[in-house]
């Protein structure tokens, strides 16, 4: 019997394939499984932050030393962190990867998420490169490819994951 590979496992495996020196984040329901797998990994430390802005700082510290770092947060959390993202990540040209769950999609219509998504579109997309993906159908090479892009562009990159209509539930 073959193992059912969940979206959280696929995200974790893609992160691990990029060989980061650290992963940091603040949980969201769509990220919970991947975060727990990262916490259990012996290949890199997972730093659980109290606030999302801290995660950007932690990733910047690793990237300043030339090491790969992955941030996992919800869209509202990244919105809390735009000052750090701009004045550290963009200003210093630091190539880290931010995995964001972009809540409030058509298939994810919680009333408390709608404005987060609208603020993400209005505030984040004009200042940073965002690549969008179906959270239930992630490419195996997603995070390695994101690092290659960020390192070529010399700036952080945002991978936005969302629930899509007709897709398998992603938590």
């Amino acid at each position: 019997m073959s193992e059912r590979v969940t979206s959280g496992m696929k995200l974790f495996r893609s992160i691990a394939a990029a060989k980061p020196k650290l992963v940091t984040g603040v949980p969201d329901g769509m990220l919970a499984e991947a975060i727990m797998l990262c916490e259990a990994s012996a290949d890199f430390p997972y730093i659980a932050c109290a606030r999302e802005e801290e995660c950007i700082g932690v990733a910047c510290g690793a990237a300043m030393a030339g090491e790969r770092a992955v941030v996992m947060v919800q869209n509202a959390g990244l919105l809390n962190s735009l000052g750090a993202f701009a004045t550290m990540g963009l200003r210093y040209g630091l190539p880290f990867v931010v995995v964001v769950t972009n809540r409030g999609a058509l298939a994810d219509p919680n009333g408390y998420d709608i404005e987060k998504r609208e603020a993400f579109d209005a505030g984040v997309r004009p200042m940073a490169r965002v690549f969008d993906f179906d959270a239930s159908d992630l490419p195996d090479d997603l995070i390695p490819a994101a690092f290659k892009w960020a390192e070529a562009a010399r700036k952080p990159v945002i991978i936005a994951l969302e629930k899509r209509l007709g897709a398998e539930a992603a938590a």
């Binding site: 510290g61 690793a62 030393a65």
Partner: peptide
């Protein structure tokens, strides 16, 4: 403090 934490980890 957060930047230093990331640096210390790597």
């Amino acid at each position: 403090t957060s930047v230093a934490l990331g640096l210390a980890a790597v």
